[in-house]
C-alpha cells in the first residue's frame, strides 16, 4: 500500500513539473526557441507573487491573478525587443542570450531578495488533505495536478479552436507564408512568450506554496521542465504532462528507497527514455 501511495504522490508531483514544462513546450512549439532562463523566470514569478502578497496583503491565490498580466507584459516585451532579434538559422544567439539572461536574472534576484529561502504564506487550505480509501492526498498536490490538466486543456483549445491559435500554428509551420496572410510573426512570437509567462506565473504559485524557494533554484526547474518535454515528445502537450508524471514518479520512488536518490532517479528515468525512445514517447514535431 505504501507503494501505491508513493506512486500517487509521484503522479501528483508530475503535475507541478508539467506546469514548469508547459510554457517551455509552447515557446518551442511556436518559434523553436529554447529559453534557458525559463527556470529563473519561474522563480522570478514566485518572488513577484511574494511581493504582491507582502505589499498589498493579498492571498497568494488572488495575487497570482494580479501577477499574470504583469508577467504577460514582461514576456511580450522580452520576446518583442530582445529574443526576436536572436531568432534565425544560427542556434548560438538564442542559446547564449537566454543563458546570459538566466545568469543576470538569478543574480538580480540574489541582489534584490538575498539568498535566504522564502515561502508564500500558507493557510488551512494548503495544509489540508482528503482521505480516499486508505490513501491520504494533500489538497495542494491535487490542486496543482488539476491546474496542470486545466492549463494543458486550455492550451490545446487555444491552439486548435481560436484565431490566435491558428496564427500560432501557421507561423510555426512557415513564418514567411504566414506573414503574407497578414500575420505579423514578431507579434505572434511576443504573444506566445507572453502566454508562456502567464503559465509560468501559475507554476510559480504552486512552487512557492509547496516548498521553499531561493534565487538559485531556477536552473534545476529548467532541467525538470526540459526532461518532461523531451520524455513526452516535442510538440505534444499531453506528452509533456505524461513526461512530468514520469519524472515525478521516478523522484518519489527514488526518494522512498533512499532520500539522497530523489533527484538522481528523475534524471536516470529521463536518460532511460532517451536511450529507448530518443524522440520521446509521443513525438509530434519533426525537429
Amino acid at each position: 500500500m505504501i507503494w501505491v501511495d508513493t506512486i500517487i504522490q509521484g503522479i501528483l508531483l508530475g503535475g507541478l513539473y508539467a506546469l514548469f514544462a508547459a510554457g517551455l513546450s509552447l515557446v518551442f512549439g511556436v518559434m523553436r526557441l529554447v529559453n534557458l532562463a525559463h527556470g529563473d523566470l519561474i522563480v522570478m514569478g514566485a518572488y513577484l507573487i511574494l511581493v504582491l502578497v507582502t505589499l498589498l496583503g493579498l492571498s497568494p491565490f488572488v495575487a497570482v491573478f494580479v501577477a499574470m498580466p504583469l508577467m504577460f507584459g514582461l514576456g511580450w516585451a522580452l520576446q518583442r525587443f530582445l529574443l526576436n532579434r536572436t531568432l534565425g538559422d544560427d542556434i548560438l544567439p538564442p542559446l547564449l542570450v537566454t543563458f546570459g539572461l538566466s545568469i543576470a536574472l538569478q543574480n538580480a534576484l540574489l541582489e534584490g531578495f538575498s539568498a535566504d529561502s522564502q515561502r508564500l504564506p500558507t493557510n488551512a487550505l494548503t495544509t489540508a488533505s482528503v482521505e480516499i480509501g486508505s490513501i491520504t492526498l494533500g489538497v495542494m498536490p491535487l490542486l496543482t495536478f488539476a491546474s496542470a490538466v486545466l492549463v494543458i486543456v486550455g492550451l490545446n483549445q487555444l491552439f486548435y479552436r481560436t484565431e490566435i491559435g491558428r496564427a500560432f500554428r501557421a507561423t510555426s509551420d512557415d513564418a514567411t507564408t504566414a506573414s503574407l496572410m497578414g500575420i505579423k510573426p514578431a507579434n505572434i512570437f511576443a504573444t506566445a512568450t507572453g502566454i508562456a509567462l502567464v503559465i509560468v506565473t501559475i507554476a510559480a504559485l504552486y512552487l512557492g506554496l509547496r516548498a521553499n524557494f531561493d534565487p538559485n533554484i531556477g536552473p534545476a526547474r529548467l532541467i525538470y521542465a526540459f526532461e518532461a518535454v523531451i520524455i513526452g515528445g516535442l510538440g505534444s502537450l499531453w506528452g509533456t504532462l505524461f513526461g512530468g508524471i514520469i519524472i515525478g514518479v521516478a523522484q518519489t520512488v527514488g526518494a522512498a528507497i533512499n532520500p539522497e536518490w530523489q533527484i538522481l532517479a528523475g534524471h536516470l528515468a529521463f536518460l532511460i527514455v532517451l536511450l529507448v525512445r530518443p524522440r520521446g514517447l509521443f513525438p509530434r514535431a519533426n525537429d
Binding site: L33, V34, L36, I91, I223, F226, I263, H267, L275, P278
Partner: peptide, 24 residues
C-alpha cells in the same frame, strides 16, 4: 546520450548529464 538531442536540446542534455555525474 547527448548526440541524440539537437541544437538547444543538446545544450540542456549535457547539463543534465553533468548533474547526474555530480550526484553520483
Amino acid at each position: 546520450f547527448a548526440f541524440r538531442l539537437n541544437g538547444a536540446y543538446f545544450a540542456i542534455g549535457t547539463w543534465v548529464i553533468a548533474e547526474v555525474v555530480r550526484l553520483l
